[in-house]
Measured scan of single mutants.
Amino acid sequence: HNLTITQGKLFFHYNPKLCLSEIHKMEEVSGTKGRQERNDIALKTNGDQASCENELLKFSYIRTSFDKILLRWEPYWPPDFRDLLGFMLFYKEAPYQNVTEFDGQDACGSNSWTVVDIDPPLRSNDPKSQNHPGWLMRGLKPWTQYAIFVKTLVTFSDERRTYGAKSDIIYVQTDATNPSVPLDPISVSNSSSQIILKWKPPSDPNGNITHYLVFWERQAEDSELFELDYCLKGLKLPSRTWSPPFESEDSQKHNQSEYEDSAGECCSCPKTDSQILKELEESSFRKTFEDYLHNVVFVPRKTSSGTGAEDPRPSRKRRSLGDVGNVTVAVPTVAAFPNTSSTSVPTSPEEHRPFEKVVNKESLVISGLRHFTGYRIELQACNQDTPEERCSVAAYVSARTMPEAKADDIVGPVTHEIFENNVVHLMWQEPKEPNGLIVLYEVSYRRYGDEELHLCVSRKHFALERGCRLRGLSPGNYSVRIRATSLAGNGSWTEPTYFYVTDYLDVPSNIA
């Protein structure tokens, strides 16, 4: 807008934040220059609390790290170098490059900038070799853009010569660093050979998330399962459950009422301010606690030095998902009996873990797994792929695949051998790939016309006998059925096997 004052003059007093240069501009645009008398524009009460600059400061050096910015700028000295009290560095987070010096300023003089007072450097006698002032900004957020400017702080001049310097606002972004852990990993099994893994992005990506790394490792069953005799009275049979499938998407929606109208769909109840505040506090606490764990609990591995020492970490090797089922080394339970199943799973520490690289999504279907087997899954978020990966501390989750139908069934015939004193040795093959492992066998036998009897055969007993022995049988026709019990439950009964026990007292003698 054009402003013209045809008559009258300007009068400025007691404006401590208004620089004289701005008042002189007002004289020019209003056409009143030359009308004012000496005392109409006070030299001592206008701009006496402001830094009124008329020179431009330029930054000469900028260096960044993930949490620091090192700045240096060209030296500046007023005509009387004693008038320079120091520099004021202003900075704040700036997602967009549209910041002005006066953003967030209120009537009390406060604003949204963080201000650092910096002492002037030592003055050199040689004007050509003056030290460049600077400042190291610490405690910054990774991968965050900051708006920065600097200006001088000078003393009051009796001659009211307006001098000083100020830089333009520059924008500097800190470097990326390792992201925080992925949030809320959930693993479920939808079949006997697959596990579905879902997660949420890290709360602090500290860069642009480029991919996720998912490692999985087959877990050995508890050692007590191999040692305890679950045929003993009072000892509860062990059981394991597989990871249940995901709930429906509708039930997972946030901010939804727990109660549904019987007449149909209901609208979600909005969260109160107290609920939102509580969630923010919980989120802040979780982030602080995660940072504490990362800094205190997890110790970084030592990389190899120039002395030739090897990095103890196993090298990563990509495998196809079809090879995942046989990740671990199978060892027989008892070496003397080769027909026992290889369900003991000690994992070799030198073995390469299978892994998958996930790009542009937060889910993965891990296939080719062994049925009813526990897996430990390790999830890392990465925001750099080359020249070397920059990934987060791992988040861990466990899951067990679903049982395989008929995996616990005894394959092959049940054979028998009759000894003296009416002892019958029953023999059968253990299931080759049971659900988890076989903890015991149930032997059901009966003599024709009598009630059915049951015998429990422990895992250890089966390994020693290759089956079991029935003792003290009365003469007669017998039928026997056997079924295995694994961590997933009972298998199917075998087809009945028949044998006849004679009275050993009636056996004919070869003595003449």
Rank of each mutant, 00 (worst) to 15 (best):
T303S: 10
A335P: 13
S363N: 06
K432C: 11
K406R: 05
S304C: 04
Y441V: 02
L235I: 06
T307Y: 14
C456V: 02
S320T: 11
F419V: 05
D385P: 05
W216E: 01
S367Q: 09
P270G: 01
E281N: 04
L473H: 01
R313Y: 09
V414P: 07
N255M: 13
E217Y: 13
S344T: 11
R447N: 04
W493H: 00
T303N: 14
E420P: 14
A335M: 13
H454N: 05
G234M: 10
E260P: 10
S363E: 14
K432E: 12
A488D: 03
K357H: 03
E227K: 08
V411S: 10
V214M: 09
S363F: 13
R459G: 09
E265K: 09
E420G: 04
F355M: 11
E452L: 10
L369M: 08
G476D: 00
S398K: 11
T401L: 03
Y230W: 06
E362A: 09
S458E: 09
A309R: 12
T272W: 06
F226L: 09
K357Y: 09
E442F: 12
L487P: 06
R469V: 09
E249Y: 05
L232F: 12
E356I: 11
V331H: 15
Q219S: 04
S251V: 09
P332W: 10
F462Q: 06
H425F: 15
R447H: 07
N360M: 14
S268E: 13
R218G: 13
E452R: 07
L369D: 00
L237C: 13
V501E: 00
E417Q: 13
E217S: 07
E465D: 06
P349K: 12
P205C: 05
E260I: 07
D250F: 13
M402S: 15
R483W: 00
R301S: 04
Q380K: 11
E389Q: 12
Y396K: 14
G325F: 10
P312G: 14
G308S: 12
G374R: 03
V439W: 07
S239L: 12
N421D: 14
M402D: 11
N477P: 05
S444G: 14
A463T: 12
C231W: 03
D250K: 10
G472D: 12
P332A: 09
Q380L: 13
W242M: 04
L379D: 01
P312N: 05
Y498W: 08
Y259F: 10
N255V: 10
V297Y: 11
L280V: 14
A335L: 12
P434Y: 03
H461Q: 12
S283H: 10
S509A: 08
Y478W: 08
L237Y: 02
L237F: 06
R316V: 11
L453M: 08
Y396T: 11
T494W: 01
R447F: 02
F372G: 05
H416K: 06
I209G: 12
E495W: 12
G472Q: 06
P245Q: 15
G306T: 13
F246R: 05
R400T: 06
C267S: 07
E247I: 05
T340E: 14
L473G: 01
S341I: 07
L237E: 15
H416Q: 10
E258M: 11
M402W: 11
S274I: 02
E247F: 08
F372I: 01
A463Y: 06
H371N: 03
S274L: 07
L228I: 11
W242Q: 12
N295S: 12
L379N: 01
K432H: 14
S248I: 12
C267W: 02
L505E: 06
L321Y: 09
V411I: 05
S305Q: 14
R319P: 07
P354F: 08
S223F: 06
S509P: 09
H454S: 02
S248Q: 15
D450L: 04
T386V: 03
F298E: 08
F337R: 13
N477I: 04
R301L: 08
Y396Q: 07
F462E: 02
E351K: 14
N421P: 15
S320F: 12
I418V: 10
G412Q: 11
R466P: 04
L277I: 11
P314K: 13
S367D: 06
S341V: 11
E433Y: 09
R471C: 11
G489T: 10
S257G: 06
G325R: 04
L280N: 14
S479W: 06
T241C: 13
S262N: 11
S367W: 12
G472A: 14
V214R: 00
L379C: 09
F289V: 12
M402F: 11
V424K: 01
